[in-house]
Nucleic acid binder design. Structure first.
Lengths: 228, 228
DNA sequence: CGGAAGATTGATCAGTTTCAAGCTCCGTGG
DNA sequence: CCACGGAGCTTGAAACTGATCAATCTTCCG
C-alpha cells in the first residue's frame, strides 16, 4: 500500500503544467493517509482544514437523508481531488466521504495550498477546470433526476461505463446498492430495472459484470426515446 | 436601461479586491448587451466564446427534456456570472439561458478574460469561490431532488426566500411555473402543494405574495420531519 | 373589454418506494 | 472441507407520490 506521492501528483490533472519546483513544494506540504474499506474520510459539517487527492482506491461522496437513505454525488478514483470545495468557499465539508476500497489519500492543508494558488496561475486554472467539470456533471445529474426515469439513468450510466472501460462488457465498480444511490433510486428498483433490460435482451447480467448486448437500444433508452 | 459598467463590476463578488487598474482593464474588454423579457441569451450546445455578468434584471438557466419540460438550474440576478463554466472546461454552453425580465448583461470574451486570470491571482480565487458556491448549491439540489418530497423542497425554498427578503411575507420573483421547474416538479403539483400548506394554515397565498404564518412548522416540513 | 397566458382543481394513471419474504454468494469457524 | 450466518441482491404485492389529461377560473395587458 506504499504510494509515491510525486508520481500520484504528476498524474493528477490538477497538477499538470507545473514546474519541478512546484512539485517539490507540493510534495513537501503533502501528507499521505491510509484508509480501510468502509472508513470515513470526511464527515459532512466538519470544519474544513484541507482536502485530499485520491492516490489509490475508490471513495464515495454522498449526502444522507433524515431516514438514512444515501444519495451518491461522486465516486472518485486515482488523481481526483476530494473535499476541495470548502477550501474556496464555506468553512465546512458539504458531504460525507467514505472509502469504497482500501485507499490511500494525499492531504493538503488549506492554508498552504492557498498560498501556492496565489503564486501559481496555472494551478488556479487547473482547479477552475476541475470545478467546472464537476459543475457540468452536477448539472447533468440534476437534469437526469428531474427529467428522466430510472431506466434512462441506468442506460446512460452503463453506456458511460462502457466508454470508460472500452468494452461492451462492463464491470461495475460499485455494489448494486451504491449504484442505486448514485442513480437516485434504491436497490430494489435498480434490480427490477436491470431485470427488465435483461428480459428485453438489451443486457446480460452476471454478478457484477454486465454485457451490453444491444447498444443501440440502450442509447435510445438513455435518451428517453424508448419506454421499455 | 442604461447601466454603468464599472458600477456593476464593482458590486460583483467576482471582482472584489482588484486594483483600479484591473477595473479599467475589465471595463475596457467588457461589452454591455440588452435583452427583452423572454429573449434567449445562451443556447445549450452553442460554442462558448465568452460569458456574461448580469447587470440588471433576472435570467434563468435551465435544461430541457426531450418532451419539452424544463428543469431550472439557477436564477441569476445582478452581479452574478452566467455561462462561465465553458471558459474553463469544455467548449460549449451546458444549458439554456433566457431573460425572465428585461435585462442588461455584460459580456467578456473568453480569451481576454483568461489573460486577466493569469495575471490576477485574486481574480482566479474569486472565480474559484464562485464556482465552489455553485457546486455546493448543486449538491444541495441533488440531495433535495433525490431525498426530499415536493413539500419539503417548497418549504425550504420559501424559508430561504424569507431570509433573503428579510420578511415572513415573501414575494415570488418567479412565475409559479418557473418556480415549479426550479423545484423539480410541475405547476399543477406546486399548486396542490401550496393549497395543502394553505389548508394547514402554514402559509397564506395572495397572488405572487406568500405570507409565512407558521415558520416553525415550515421548518420541520423542510427538514422532512413532518409529512403534511 | 377581450383574449391569451398563467394558475387552480379534479380524476386518473404511471413510476417508484415500501414492506416482506426468499435467495445467492462468500467468508468464517467448527 | 463443509456448514453456518450474514450481507447483498432479487422478487412480489400493495401503497403512495407525483405526473398527465382535461376543464375551469383568474390575471394580465393590449
Amino acid at each position: 500500500m506504499a504510494v509515491d506521492i510525486k508520481t500520484v501528483l504528476a498524474e493528477s490533472q490538477l497538477f499538470q503544467g507545473l514546474t519541478t519546483r512546484d512539485y517539490d513544494k507540493l510534495a513537501s506540504i503533502a501528507v499521505s493517509v491510509e484508509f480501510r474499506k468502509g472508513d470515513t474520510i470526511l464527515t459532512e459539517g466538519d470544519p474544513a482544514l484541507g482536502f485530499y487527492i485520491v492516490a489509490e482506491g475508490l471513495v464515495k461522496v454522498f449526502k444522507v437523508s433524515v431516514d438514512g437513505k444515501e444519495q451518491l454525488l461522486h465516486v472518485f478514483g486515482e488523481g481526483e481531488p476530494v473535499g476541495e470545495v470548502p477550501v474556496f468557499s464555506g468553512t465546512h465539508y458539504p458531504a460525507h466521504v467514505v472509502a469504497l476500497t482500501p485507499a490511500v489519500l494525499v492531504y493538503f492543508a488549506r492554508d498552504e495550498f492557498t498560498h501556492m494558488l496565489n503564486a501559481n496561475p496555472q494551478l488556479a486554472l487547473n482547479m477552475l477546470a476541475t470545478l467546472s467539470q464537476r459543475l457540468r456533471r452536477f448539472a447533468g445529474v440534476i437534469e437526469d433526476l428531474s427529467l428522466k426515469d430510472v431506466s434512462a439513468r441506468l442506460a446512460k450510466y452503463l453506456l458511460s461505463l462502457a466508454k470508460k472501460q472500452q468494452s461492451t462488457s462492463v464491470i461495475l465498480p460499485l455494489s448494486k446498492g451504491d449504484l442505486a444511490s448514485s442513480l437516485g433510486t434504491i436497490s430494489e428498483t435498480l434490480s427490477r430495472t436491470l431485470s427488465r433490460l435483461r428480459a428485453a435482451e438489451v443486457v446480460e447480467v452476471a454478478r457484477n459484470r454486465i454485457d451490453l448486448l444491444d447498444v443501440e437500444t440502450l442509447e435510445s433508452i438513455a435518451a428517453g426515446e424508448r419506454v421499455l
